[in-house]
Design a binder for these strands. Structure first.
Lengths: 165, 165
DNA sequence: TATCAAGTTCAGTGATTTCCGAACAAACTG
DNA sequence: CAGTTTGTTCGGAAATCACTGAACTTGATA
């Protein structure tokens, strides 16, 4: 493992950690993006990332569960191989979408709550302002973002013909 | 504190925790969105959220630092007041933007790395495919999202005239 | 059968996080 | 001045997390 690779992997892992991905999972992801060949066995991963079989096993399982990584088996090969899921980054747009929806729901829950407990319209209006701002932002976003994603798909000539197995 | 409020606060706190905000900070944020009046003192917060002064003190400081909450002092009042930062949710669009930029930079770092180490163009092309997909997604997003934000600002008649103090 | 590699799971360790209570400091009030 | 309220900070308890080594399962091969 070269110095530059290590730097790239560690920096990427730190960035990913800052957005909630465990450090080791981040390292695996970063490595799977640059390795050759793209399919790596678990022993490959333990060797390149200098980590124990167990962390690799646990973290690959997590990455597979979250859809970032997929497991492929090649005929005539005993080992399992792991690789970045094709189209993962495109699909991550939908992940962002879900987060926006979460904020939207939170604002709606808050608005529903104060509508129930409000004594009079004036108070409701006053209390609702903060939530209203939040609601408007995420309502706009939840509505416009899919459009952006559509635009991406059209703008992108890449067919989703990804060779499987 | 009513039952429905508690439910709203705990659910919101759990959602926020899932995206990296500490539980207690999430509770404060959720409460500051629905409370009346919008400005709350630290004793108010400890009372409503049934938490110790110290957690409230620590977490409000963090929320202030991250710009989600601001501290206001009212003349003739000894206590400090805390409230949701006006325009916070609009500004959170820029936070999303920064995250997209982070992914873009990560893909660029990866591409730079394999360009250096590539033996021949064919291998480079093969190795680069995964990173290329990532790069294209986030390059598109980093370029288009600001436009979306602009659209939001135009679409939104709300002047940033938020009554201060 | 014995043997070896691949992979999972479990118990445990060390580091970190989240929260609290208590001690403390700072500022006002009588 | 003493007493009260406000807020911060420190030490520590409890929980969680990231990672490891070791025991175990599975399946292929000789």
């Amino acid at each position: 493992m070269q110095k530059a690779e290590e730097t790239y992997i560690e920096e990427s892992a730190l960035f990913l950690e800052s957005i909630g991905v465990p450090r080791m999972a981040g390292r695996i992801l970063a490595w799977l993006l640059i390795c050759e060949p793209p399919e790596q066995t678990m022993p490959d991963l333990t060797r390149h990332l200098q980590a124990s079989k167990s962390s690799i096993s646990t973290m690959t399982r997590m990455l597979v569960q979250f859809g970032m990584v997929e497991r492929v088996s090649l005929t005539g090969e005993r080992k399992d191989f792991y690789r970045i899921s094709p189209e993962f980054w495109s699909r991550s747009l939908e992940t962002a979408q879900r987060k926006f929806d979460g904020f939207l729901r939170m604002s709606q829950a808050g608005l529903a709550l104060i509508e129930c407990g409000a004594e009079n319209p004036a108070e409701l209006d006053n209390r609702g302002q903060r939530l209203q701002e939040m609601y408007e932002v995420y309502n706009f976003l939840a509505a416009s973002f899919p459009q952006l994603v559509d635009e991406w798909r059209r703008h992108q000539p890449r067919a989703s013909a990804t060779s499987q197995d």
